[in-house]
Write a protein that binds this DNA or RNA. Structure first.
Lengths: 219, 219
DNA sequence: CCGCCTATTATTAGGAC
DNA sequence: AGTCCTAATAATAGGCG
């Protein structure tokens, strides 16, 4: 600003920093007062001094409190709404993608399982009660395949194009808390459902060979 | 600043004010950022736009909330002290003005009451126990006059020149919490004392005619 | 640390488009 | 209203006492 153009970085020299701080804080407060006067706007400025416990408050602690209460009065009402507006659209889109992903997953799952059964268990009979070791092996193979698929699905999710925040306007009104909650919970639940060991194994415990045939081997 | 030195007052022209506001707010935020960077201090800036519901917040709503919470954390212990530091001088001055006002009020009160009694009750005897209706009427007249006076006093108070915030430095150290509290309470108490119905009527209930003569009719 | 000074940079008012 | 321009004012870094 003066004899030398100053670099915009922390002034390491202690005395110089303190001097600059005092000058500039004074200047800032003057600017704030001018802005407030010239344009008749409400504003407040809080500057913590270098190491000072008490900040300098403009225009006064009292007026600042008024401004701040006004800011705090609409925190949940507007700020959350704002957040919802920004994330709601994304969430909705995410839920839709999730739905597509699950659908595809089911299709792929059926196809892969079918192929796996065809290749891995060709000629072996699934009728009656199969041996536990054979079925455990099958479960592991299926699980492995599904893990691969889940990795691919996650990759697809990550690479899916998200709408930039600027493009998100207030068009999307939140319908009801219950609905929001349901939509919010959906993506997580989708992942939880896909633990193969959890839902596959029971079928191997009770002799579901006929059912497996009906489901996977019909083609 | 530029082609013309601007007067420090509300810009009446709408477009000019908005333009100035935009430029200066931008400048302020830049200054704030510079100050924060150069001196490594914590600060926040909140500026309500002209008519905007949502203020512009620097550095961000979140960071501002942090700064504000820090301000709120030491609420009664330090903030009151701070308020006292900034407003104490003004309060003191206000209390002095208040004292002058009360003194003048007493003088005016005596004078006006005397005139009222001279004009409204000329020739009627105030000795002995006057009729309740006559005294109630007198009380009402006195009350009305004092209401007028209080209005005038309020007007004087409002028009009294307050010292600008810039002139108030940290020269005034708070002496003790008790003393501060007393000085803070004084201005309000002064107004409360001036309810005529409260303190006038008792005199009409117990036959104070002689006292009234002594007080108001001696001239 | 504080105030004062001044060369220099930064901000901005007013206009033009 | 928004952008660019420019003259003019305002802010201030670095010295000095």
């Amino acid at each position: 600003m003066s004899r030398k153009k100053v670099k915009l970085q922390w002034i390491s020299n202690d005395a110089a920093r303190r001097a600059t701080f005092k000058k500039r804080r004074k200047g800032m407060i003057k600017k704030a007062a001018e802005l407030s006067t010239l344009c008749g706007v409400n504003a407040c400025l809080i500057v913590y001094g270098d190491g000072e416990q008490q900040p300098e408050i403009w225009p006064s602690a009292h007026d600042a409190a008024i401004v701040l209460s006004r800011l705090k009065r609409l925190p949940e009402m507007e700020q959350i709404k704002q957040m919802m507006n920004q994330e709601g659209f994304m969430r909705q889109r995410h839920a839709k993608l999730q739905e597509q992903v699950r659908k595809q997953e089911r299709e792929n799952g059926e196809l892969e399982t079918m192929l796996l059964l065809r290749h891995g268990l060709a000629g072996r009979s699934m009728h009656g009660v199969a041996s536990r070791s054979q079925l455990a092996n099958l479960a592991w193979l299926i699980e492995r395949k599904m893990c691969e698929m889940r990795r691919r699905i996650e990759s697809l999710r990550r690479s899916s194009v998200m709408p930039p925040p600027e493009a998100v306007k207030k068009e999307v009104a939140p319908a009801s808390p219950a609905l929001e909650a349901k939509e919010k919970k959906a993506p997580e639940a989708a992942t939880e459902e896909l633990q193969p060991q959890e839902w596959l194994l029971p079928f191997f415990e009770h002799g579901n060979g006929a059912w497996l045939d009906a489901c996977f081997l019909k083609n």
